[in-house]
Simulated scan of single mutants.
Amino acid sequence: MRIDQLVDEAPAGAWRRLSCGNGAQGPRVYDWVAAELPANIVFDPDPPTRHPWVVAR
């Protein structure tokens, strides 16, 4: 699965609106979602030692 497909299929309840701080024209507010990616057994043996995540805005 491609990353853009994973983000597009994120449920509405997974998104969070968070501020990134103040900008020149007011607060910079964005919608964010995070998802844990499946383990890649080619690069990480069983059991996986890493747990990759993707964060999208």
Rank of each mutant, 00 (worst) to 15 (best):
M1K: 02
M1R: 00
M1G: 08
R2E: 15
I3S: 06
D4Y: 14
D4H: 11
D4R: 03
D4N: 09
Q5Y: 04
Q5W: 05
Q5I: 08
L6M: 14
V7D: 00
V7F: 03
D8F: 00
D8V: 01
D8W: 02
E9P: 03
E9W: 00
E9N: 11
A10H: 02
P11R: 07
P11Y: 00
G13Y: 09
G13K: 11
G13P: 05
G13A: 14
G13M: 05
W15F: 13
R16M: 09
R16A: 10
R16L: 10
R16Q: 12
R17P: 02
L18Q: 05
S19I: 04
S19C: 08
C20S: 11
C20T: 10
C20E: 08
G21P: 10
G21V: 07
N22W: 14
N22M: 13
G23K: 13
G23W: 09
G23L: 08
A24G: 00
G26V: 10
P27Y: 03
P27K: 01
R28M: 10
R28D: 09
V29C: 03
Y30Q: 13
D31C: 04
D31M: 07
W32P: 01
W32F: 15
V33H: 01
V33Q: 03
V33G: 06
V33L: 07
A34E: 14
A34Y: 08
A35K: 01
A35L: 15
E36M: 06
E36K: 07
L37E: 07
L37Q: 06
L37F: 06
P38H: 03
P38I: 07
P38E: 11
P38R: 02
A39Y: 07
N40M: 06
N40F: 08
N40L: 11
N40I: 11
I41M: 10
I41E: 13
I41V: 14
V42Q: 07
V42A: 05
F43Y: 09
F43Q: 13
F43P: 00
F43D: 15
F43V: 14
P45L: 13
P45V: 12
D46P: 01
P48G: 08
P48K: 11
T49D: 12
H51V: 15
P52Q: 04
W53T: 04
W53F: 15
W53D: 09
V54E: 02
V54W: 01
V55F: 04
V55L: 10
V55R: 00
V55P: 01
A56L: 02
A56Y: 05
A56R: 00
R57P: 08
R57V: 02
R57M: 07
